[in-house]
Amino acid sequence: MSKKPGATQALHKVIMVGSGGVGKSALTLQFMYDEFVEDYEPTKADSYRKKVVLDGEEVQIDILDTAGQEDYAAIRDNYFRSGEGFLCVFSITEDDSFQATQEFREQILRVKNDENIPFLLVGNKSDLQEKRKVSLADAQARSQQWGVPYVETSAKTRENVDKVFFDLMREIRSRKIEDKSASNGRGKDRAKRKKKKCIIL
């Protein structure tokens, strides 16, 4: 991509995380192309970027669709580092995937070293209510514990698909504005953070 539009247009980098098979790619493709993919094909690392209009402002959203499988756990760090916002997805029909969100959350926080990183807890496959294993209450309890929003989506019916991406982008945008205002102290912050980490280690 040429650098000129990138310079003028805001670019929000979203990373999809979550266990394998919860519907990260399905959500992404539904958002990007209004397309529901039925057949399951494990993702390695996919990249999507398109222009969207966010509250009247034309911005670019960059989605990194990561692998859910444990095989790729080692390389997640690298990906997470570049993320500006995270959609942590689990399947409401699979408790394990819900439990795994804890691990992802921790890894993100460790890599980003930022408690307030834009983050959404997403319970996917809301169309399969009859197979629900994770209660709404449990999910909401966890989101409150983390201090993040919880949204239930369905990549199949497109329920809340746009909502989660746009909500996350809004968070990222407001976060960026925040950062800009405190841009002067940013480097120091980071240095501090690093130092802190070293001390911990």
Binding site: S25, L29, T43, K44, A45, D46, S47, Y48, R49, K50
Partner: peptide, 18 residues
């Protein structure tokens, strides 16, 4: 082109371009 799956790989990788 707004999507690539996967976004990296050795030569001969099967790539879905969207």
């Amino acid at each position: 082109v707004t999507g690539i799956s996967p976004k990296e790989g050795p030569p001969g990788t099967r790539v879905i371009v969207r």
